[in-house]
């Protein structure tokens, strides 16, 4: 218990986080690049899908982007919970850093989905339950970023953004189960009860790409958190400078 508590305390310290992340970031970056390149090579060397032909290769970016769009929102929701309930010092830093990265992966999911939809369904976009719910997820990310930037008081912005993030988590089960609601989108092939419905020759490249892009997400998030900690240090230094200037302008009266 004592050990667990000290670990939590260690991770809660921004200076300790900066030291740890500086060590981890280069390794994560290398791992992300290597695994993504291996996944791409495996994907392009994989057999051609018997129904969709080469077009099925789009799944190697679309599916990991879709998983990470939801994982990114889950990360924001967990961080928001950490801020509101435990007041963890890095929780808001994590939530703020994850929002633009999650939004970028959701945009990638929507764009690659459209580019896959046109040759397979004949349309770039249909108001289908799965597509529409992912579009709402993208708007939620944009809403979180916009809400935070609209409020000057940083502590208030953090709390209100956390409340919106926790409210918005309802979109995740909607996305997950939307494929069962009269959707054009195919149901889950990998993350389902029972064995994956996708052949191992296509599944392995997908899993390698997913791990590579997940590590890339973690590295980007870590870098974003580092930037946010530095931004808060800049603000603290500016505030200290103003206080120094005010102290110099009005010296304390002699007793």
């Amino acid at each position: 218990m004592q050990q667990a508590q000290s670990l939590t305390q260690r991770l809660a310290n921004p200076t300790r986080f900066m030291e740890l992340s500086a060590t981890l970031l280069p390794w994560l970056t290398v791992a992300a690049v290597v695994l993504t390149v291996i996944g791409l090579v495996m994907g392009f060397a994989a057999p051609v899908d018997y129904q969709q032909g080469h077009t099925a290769k789009i799944m190697y970016v679309h599916v990991p982007a879709a998983w990470l769009s939801m994982a990114g929102y889950s990360l924001i929701a967990i961080s928001s919970f950490g801020l509101l309930v435990f007041r963890h010092p890095l929780a808001d830093v994590s939530a703020k850093a994850a929002a633009p990265i999650g939004a970028a992966f959701t945009l990638l999911c929507l764009v690659t989905g459209s580019l896959w939809g046109k040759p397979m369904w004949g349309a770039f976009w249909v108001w289908d339950p799965r597509l529409t719910s992912v579009l709402i997820l993208f708007f939620l990310y944009i809403g979180l970023i916009a809400l935070r930037s609209a409020i000057e008081d940083e502590a208030l912005a953090a709390k209100l953004t956390a409340i919106l993030a926790l409210t918005g988590i309802v979109i995740l089960p909607v996305i997950k189960f939307s494929v069962d609601w009269n959707s054009l989108h195919q149901p889950a092939s990998v993350m389902r009860i029972g064995a994956p419905k996708i052949h191992p020759s296509l599944l392995w490249p997908l899993l390698v790409m997913a791990v590579g892009l997940t590590i890339a997400f973690v590295a980007l998030h870590m870098k974003g958190m580092r930037n946010e900690i530095l931004r808060r240090r800049v603000r603290a230094l500016r505030s200290a400078e103003v206080q120094m200037a005010a102290g110099a302008a009005s010296p304390l009266p002699a007793e």
């Binding site: 080469h54 789009i58 970016v61 764009v111 690659t112 580019l115 896959w116």
Partner: peptide
């Protein structure tokens, strides 16, 4: 469509 996806 495939190249555009990977390009994006």
């Amino acid at each position: 469509y495939i190249w555009a996806s990977f390009g994006a």
